[in-house]
């Protein structure tokens, strides 16, 4: 398994690259009024309108700074595409399933927190894309039976 490592606050997280379509430079987002703070807005990716989530804002409450190393990670969300704005998404970490240690605690409000990989550079927590959005937000961004 190959994890795409990024940072939120001073913590490091990883996304399974099997779920990643592409890592792109951050795109200009069209903001959505009255949406939660961590919904960065809509971006046009290869002719498709893709909702973008600011992962730093979701995980730490602070928006990702617009640096060169802040990148737009396009992931598969079911059969749709979701954009994740991730800070310092510049490296990968290879590991096997056995290296991942299950979380000893369970945070009900954050079902996307997965097992933890401990390597030489510290701890990397795996983020499960499928659990990233609460039902209400998911319904808002990907309305069932909606267009496309």
């Amino acid at each position: 398994m190959l994890l795409l490592v990024f940072q939120a606050g001073n913590q490091r997280f990883g996304i399974d690259t099997a779920e990643v379509i592409e890592v792109a430079p951050p795109l200009v987002c069209r903001t959505l009024p009255r949406a939660p703070a961590y919904v960065a807005g809509l971006a046009a990716y290869r002719g498709e309108t893709v909702p973008v989530i600011d992962v730093s804002a979701l995980l730490t409450g602070t928006s990702a700074p617009l640096l060169m190393s802040t990148r737009l990670v396009l992931v598969r969300y079911g059969d749709r595409i979701l954009g994740l704005l991730a800070e310092r998404a510049v490296e990968t970490a290879a590991c096997s399933e056995a290296d991942l240690q299950a979380m000893p605690v369970r945070v009900e409000a954050a079902p996307y927190l997965g097992p933890v990989l401990v390597n030489g550079a510290g701890m990397i927590q795996k983020i499960t894309v499928a659990g990233l959005l609460p039902a209400a937000v998911r319904e808002m961004l990907f309305p069932a039976g909606g267009a496309a």
Binding site: T17, A18, V23, S69
Partner: peptide, 19 residues
């Protein structure tokens, strides 16, 4: 900027290679 671009491309290459 070029180094950043190279890093981005190599990330995508690694993801494709994994796939």
């Amino acid at each position: 900027r070029v180094a950043n671009r190279t890093n981005l491309l190599s990330l995508n290459a690694a993801i494709e290679a994994e796939r």
